[in-house]
Design a protein around this nucleic acid. Structure first.
Lengths: 221, 221
DNA sequence: GACCCCAAAAATATCCAACATTTTTCGATA
DNA sequence: TATCGAAAAATGTTGGATATTTTTGGGGTC
């Protein structure tokens, strides 16, 4: 492979390929249900046939790609039902995680949440100011970081992993909303402020309600 | 086509390898934290290096194996914390799935549950009568089938997949309990009977309580 | 025109052998 | 005893080759 530096970004070729393809799926460059032919992908992204297969296997585990025996891979479809299902799973996992974090979280956890909220505020200003793919990705990453921070004190690595997985599956929908200018940044801002207060006050009911509103808005429901 | 050996299974090599290694992990032949060296595995199980790598990637997605960049694969450890975490996830996913199934399930769902309960009864008799690896696997499969049937009307493919994943992770612990003769079959039987009644009566609270008891007992807690 | 059958083409799944890079081991040396 | 570094081992990657399976694109046939 002719991409020079490898150490700084991702360790292995497979990880690099996964990162790039993941991004293209998120941005819709690779569209839902699109057939992913190994050789065609190699032309676009490089890598050997084996590396590409392994990459698709990984993405398949993340739910971004579907593998069918003897029939190869395709981008996971994105139907109305999928959207509903992802919404359900995000609600359930993140609410559970937040509930447990509220019960168990220490000051360090609060700090992580406050920090993530702050970073998100900046990212939202940025993406509104100069909307492009770069700021969109930064914004999405800040959202992801907040979601992770909120549940980071839940004490369950598996729950965190699940939440992350479903967040990843929701990314396509969120970025589409953003592209279409259907993100209500004002509403988000007030929710974020209220969420910080609720969390610092350990007001579970309010915090959970705000989280739910946020996730629903996040997906356009 | 007509002559020529038709493989009974349409499985690919990778799927077959995964099945065998999965089983060996469940039975503890491959022990927690054990390093999984590609070449060594190939000697035991066959397959090319790529097939083996792909297999381990799959198992890694299932949570049975852990992959570390540049450092290969090892069997996921099985600490007290892991057990607790798996228990938590099984409780949350299966309870949620059952709750939704109870709300949405039709007669076909009830039938599936009753059928699974019946099959399980037989499998439990069998494994008590002649305890060996074969009946143990059949028993476990019947348990898994029941767990799946219970949530099969929840309407969320992702929830089902998730529950299946965590059931798979709990398998090592359940089979260990069985091997040590610490499975309370009498208690299970009464719970199963009560569970059938509760489900047919759509008594959510009772059903959920029984499910929780069952899962806790299942893992030895 | 719709339908079925079959050969050709395409794509998947697999293997082997080799090489580059990274991690681990282990013995010599300070 | 600690540590340093070279050898050994293991991982990660590639290219090319070969079965096997699925898909495709006609010809006939009704």
């Amino acid at each position: 492979m002719i991409f020079g530096r490898r150490k700084s970004e991702d360790d292995t070729v497979v990880d690099m390929l996964a990162a790039v393809i993941r991004r293209d799926i998120s941005f819709g460059v690779l569209r839902p249900d699109q057939k992913l032919k190994i050789d065609a992908l190699r032309q676009s992204y490089g890598g050997s046939n084996h590396s590409m297969r392994e990459t698709l296997r990984m993405l398949s585990a993340e739910g971004l790609v579907e593998a069918t025996s003897q029939r190869g891979f395709r981008v996971t479809s994105a139907t109305e039902d999928d959207l509903r299902d992802i919404l359900l799973m995000r609600l359930e996992t993140e609410r559970l995680g937040l509930r447990r974090s509220l019960a168990a979280g220490d000051v360090a956890w609060e700090s992580r949440v406050v920090a993530a909220l702050h970073a998100l505020t900046r990212a939202e200003a940025q993406v509104q100011d100069t909307p492009d793919d770069v700021t969109a990705l930064a914004w999405d990453e800040a959202c992801r970081a907040l979601a992770e921070a909120l549940i980071s004190a839940c004490g369950s690595p598996r729950l965190i992993e699940m939440a992350d997985k479903f967040y990843g599956q929701s990314r396509r929908f969120r970025l589409a909303l953003l592209r279409e200018g259907r993100v209500d940044f004002a509403g988000r801002r007030t929710r974020q402020d209220q969420l910080r207060e609720a969390i610092l006050a350990r007001d579970e009911q309010t915090a959970l309600r705000l989280l739910e509103e946020d996730i629903r808005a996040d997906i356009g429901r």
